[in-house]
Design a protein around this nucleic acid. Structure first.
Lengths: 197, 197
DNA sequence: TCCAGGTGTGTACCATCGTACGCACTAGTG
DNA sequence: CACTAGTGCGTACGATGGTACACACCTGGA
C-alpha cells in the first residue's frame, strides 16, 4: 500500500549529483547539507529526509561513481588481444581519450583520501581495484598487474599535481611497455596473441 | 630591545609537532586550534599568538616536513653508483628500511591532497619533486625519472590502500629494473658504472 | 466526507570553531 | 621604584553546520 506521492522523483539522484559536484570542486570536507541543498536547489529538509546522516550521503555519492569509473578504462582493456593492445589501452587510459579529466582524477583522489580512514569507502575502492586486477589477469600475472595499477595511479596523480604541464606520450608509453614485457613469452596471453598474428 | 620573556621557548615547535600528529591521525580537515591546543597541552590563546591564522599553522606544519621527507630516500639515491644500486635504493624506499611508515605515507598523502587546492602547498610539493627529479638526473633521463616518481608514489599509495597486505620484494623490484633499464647503455651513468666494475 | 499514514519541509537548538580583544605578567630603563 | 612595551593567555562573539522535530500536504480507503 503506497500512499503519498513523491512530487519530484528525480530529487534523490539530483542530490547525489550535486554532492559529487561539490566534492569535485571543493572536496569531501566541504560537503555540507546546506551547501549541497543550495547547489541542488532543494530545501534543507529534503536533504535529511533522503539522507538521514551526512556520512550516508557521502557514501552514496561515492558509491554511485563506481559504475562510471569502472567501464571507462575497463572496456578497452577487455578488448585487448596483443601486448601492444594492452599498452595502447594503458596509454590511452593515462593521457588519451579514455583517460579521466582532471576533475575526475580529483574526484577519484577524494575517494582514496576518504577511503584511507573510512572502511566502507575502502571496501568500494578495493572492489574497483579487484575488478581492474581481474581484468589484467588474462594479460599479465597479478604481480605485474599490481605494478601497472600503481603506475597508472601514479601518472594520474602526477597530472593532478601538475595541471599545467602535459605528459609526452612516449614518456608514458615506454615504461608501460617495459612492465608489460616483464610478463614474458611464457605467459598464456602471449601465445594466444602470436596465434592470432 | 627585547622585553618580556618567552616562558616556554619550545612551545612553537611543539605546536607544529602536535599539528602534524593531528594531521597524521585525522587528516588536515580535522585540524582546529582547539584540537591542536589540547593535543599540545597549550592554551588556546597561545595558538593564535604563534599562528594568527589557521592556514598559516597548517602551512608551517606541512612545510616543516620537507626537511624530513627529502633526505630519507634522497641520501641512498645520491650514493648509487650502478643501475643496480639505483634499483636497490628504489626498492628500499618503496618497502624497505628507508621507506616511510604508513602514517608518514598518510601524511604525505594529506599534503598532496591539500596541495591540489592550495597553490602554496602545491609549490612545496613541486620543490620536493624537483629535488627528486634532480637527484635522478645523473642516473636516468628526465622522462624516466618521471615514471619512477609516478611508480614510487603509486606503490606508496597502494600500501596506504592495503595496509594489511604486504608487497613482495620481487613484485616491486622487477618493474623498477625494467624502467631503469630503459635508460639504455647510452646514458652517461651507465658508462661510469661499467668503468667501476 | 472523514480518517490514517506516508511524504516532504521549515525552523530551531546545540555544538563546534575561527578570531578578536582586553588583561595580566615580565623585564629592561631611568 | 615607577614606567613602558612586548609577551602570553582567558574569554566571548559571530558564523557555520548537523540534527531533531513539529507540521503541512497528499493519497487511498471506509
Amino acid at each position: 500500500m503506497r500512499r503519498g506521492k513523491p512530487n519530484d522523483p528525480g530529487r534523490r539522484s539530483r542530490i547525489l549529483e550535486a554532492t559529487l559536484d561539490v566534492i569535485r570542486t571543493d572536496g569531501i570536507s566541504a560537503v555540507s547539507y546546506r551547501g549541497v541543498a543550495a547547489h541542488a536547489e532543494v530545501p534543507l529538509g529534503s536533504m535529511t529526509y533522503y539522507f538521514p546522516t551526512l556520512e550516508g550521503l557521502i557514501l552514496s555519492a561515492l558509491d554511485s561513481t563506481r559504475s562510471d569509473l569502472e567501464p571507462r578504462y575497463a572496456a578497452p582493456l577487455r578488448g585487448a588481444r596483443t601486448p601492444a593492445d594492452v599498452v595502447d589501452a594503458l596509454v590511452d587510459a593515462t593521457i588519451g581519450s579514455t583517460s579521466p579529466s582532471l576533475t575526475d582524477i580529483r574526484l577519484y583522489e577524494e575517494i582514496r583520501h576518504y577511503g584511507a580512514r573510512d572502511p566502507k569507502v575502502a571496501a568500494v575502492l578495493q572492489a574497483v581495484e579487484d575488478d581492474a586486477l581481474a581484468m589484467l589477469q588474462p594479460v599479465v600475472p597479478t604481480s605485474i598487474a599490481l605494478a601497472i595499477n600503481a603506475l597508472l595511479w601514479g601518472w594520474w596523480s602526477h597530472r593532478l599535481a601538475h595541471p599545467d604541464t602535459s605528459l609526452d606520450e612516449a614518456t608514458v608509453r615506454r615504461p608501460y611497455e617495459a612492465i608489460v614485457a616483464l610478463a614474458g613469452p611464457d605467459h598464456p596471453f602471449q601465445a594466444e596473441g602470436l596465434n592470432d598474428g
